[in-house]
């Protein structure tokens, strides 16, 4: 019990703080929290693919958009409730993930990236131009609040807790996957595919599994997004969204799910925070780019790591001294 607590301390703190927050926040701040929660689910799904599956994907927004559009389209044509749409969301996004994984069997390394990019562009084009189903560029307006088996979640607070439920489930499932045989094999493959194959691990089925699961969770996040905005349109789901997701994963650390949650929180709140600075008005988005470069530099360059170590050790020394002083007193 104690070890579990220790291992997942950060996660627990985040959950507790977020679940208590609605008491203190107004609608605007709540909306930011909801966006952050959705970003967490989305980013964690990408982390599974990138951190554990070792695949850098430039097109993760595609699954997000498929999730959003599946529930939107089903509501538009059949007026179905969210709970009814949920299974189709899982199925359609899962299928998409599966489809994407198929070409990957023969493709390795950098080529994977271009395939994910192309895939995302194709999905976006289909949504943009399949007017009878998706209404194309007009978008689907008026998507209602989430309806769970007849109970409608009228307030945003209720919706927030639903989202948090999914955040918690995602974290638990991701961690379980990573520590299972599946996860170990995946990490073996991403570390050294040739060695893994030599050990008898068949690469292809694992690729399929990781893509499918990753896609499904991204789809769940997307479906919630559709009901949050009550509006979907194709241009929201562009490659910038994919890059923002990569930023969130990167800040937290590949393979580190609680870190991803922090990254998602940070990068959702940062642009809102920067809104208050007049002179940065036009340049807010530079923050995303800068974050990537700086985090990469700190963690993965020699001078950067030296700097990080120096600061951390300085900080630790301070802590130890405080502890020692406290003990003496």
């Amino acid at each position: 019990m104690k070890t579990i607590l220790k291992k997942h301390l950060l996660f627990l703190i985040i959950i507790v703080v977020m679940c208590v927050a609605p008491v203190f926040t107004n609608a605007y701040q709540l909306r930011i929290l909801i966006s952050a929660a959705l970003a967490m689910i989305f980013a964690m799904s990408l982390n599974l693919l990138m951190g554990i599956g070792g695949t850098v994907s430039f097109g993760h927004a595609a699954f997000y958009s498929i999730g959003a559009y599946t529930t939107a389209v089903l509501w538009y044509h059949f007026r179905t409730a969210y709970s009814t749409n949920f299974i189709p969301v899982l199925l359609v996004t899962g299928l998409a993930g599966l489809l994407l994984s198929l070409p990957m069997s023969r493709i390795t390394g950098r080529y994977v990236t271009i395939i994910t990019l192309s895939f995302a562009e194709i999905v976006n084009l289909i949504i943009k131009n399949w007017d009878p189903v998706t209404l194309g560029q007009m978008g689907i307006v008026g998507i209602p609040s989430v309806n769970l088996f007849g109970h409608v979640l009228k307030s945003k607070t209720e919706f927030f807790y639903l989202t948090m439920f999914f955040v918690i489930m995602t974290y638990i499932i991701m961690n379980w996957l990573v520590n299972s045989k599946l996860g170990r094999n995946l990490r073996a493959i991403s570390n050294d595919a040739i060695a893994a194959e030599a050990m008898g691990i068949k690469i292809f089925p694992y690729k399929v599994i990781v893509f499918t699961i990753s896609a499904v969770f991204a789809g769940i996040a997307g479906s919630l997004y559709a009901h949050l905005m009550s509006y979907v349109e194709p241009s929201t789901f562009n490659s910038n969204l994919s890059f923002q997701c990569i930023s969130m994963v990167v800040i937290g650390g590949l393979g580190n799910f609680s870190g991803t949650m922090v990254g998602a929180l940070f990068l959702t709140i940062l642009p809102e925070y920067l809104r208050r600075f007049e002179f940065l008005f036009k340049y807010r988005m530079i923050a995303y780019g800068l974050v990537l470069v700086i985090v990469m530099w700190i963690n993965h360059s020699i001078p950067g790591t030296k700097l990080k170590n120096a600061v951390t050790s300085r900080f630790n020394a301070l802590l130890h001294r405080k502890n020692a002083e406290a003990q003496e007193a």
């Binding site: 850098v56 530079i286 470069v293 990469m296 530099w297 993965h300």
Partner: peptide
Amino acid sequence: PIREKGDSNTYALISSIGVKTILE
């Protein structure tokens, strides 16, 4: 700086994405 450290060049890729965003 990232290249010299020798970690996987996924990190350099991500850094180049950051540069792209900044320039744009």
